[in-house]
């Protein structure tokens, strides 16, 4: 999955931004609390920690974010979890959409 997503950064983030996001991430998710998330954050940081690595990722990374579309959506959801709460009108739409099987 896109490391910028995992660290919740924009693609133009600087080295300092990335380091800060990494440290915040591992502080919130230490390995004893959520080993999977900790590993994802560490891997993401290694992928984009400096400009050269960021360019390597942008240009040459060919690791698929999942095996199926369902897995991509699933991984994306986990990467951005928890999302911001929906505005009330959107919440209504979401709950109503859950009525459909």
């Amino acid at each position: 999955m896109n490391p910028f997503l995992i660290l919740r950064l924009s693609p133009d983030a600087t080295d300092a931004d990335i380091r800060r996001a990494y440290l915040d991430g591992i502080r919130q998710c230490p390995p004893e609390r959520d080993a999977e998330r900790f590993q994802a954050i560490s891997q993401a940081y290694e992928q984009i920690r400096d400009e050269s690595k960021r360019l390597q990722y942008r240009l040459f990374d060919m690791t698929s974010p999942g095996m199926t579309l369902g897995e991509v959506v699933q991984k994306y959801c986990v990467a951005v979890s928890p999302p911001k709460p929906l505005e009330f009108e959107l919440m209504k739409t979401f709950l109503r959409s859950c009525l459909t099987k």
Binding site: L5, P11, S64, P65, L69, V73
Partner: peptide, 16 residues
């Protein structure tokens, strides 16, 4: 190319 769901899905197709 953005880090959003459309970006993740695009990434999937281009690395599939």
């Amino acid at each position: 190319l953005q880090p959003n769901l459309a970006g993740a899905l695009s990434d999937f197709y281009m690395k599939a």
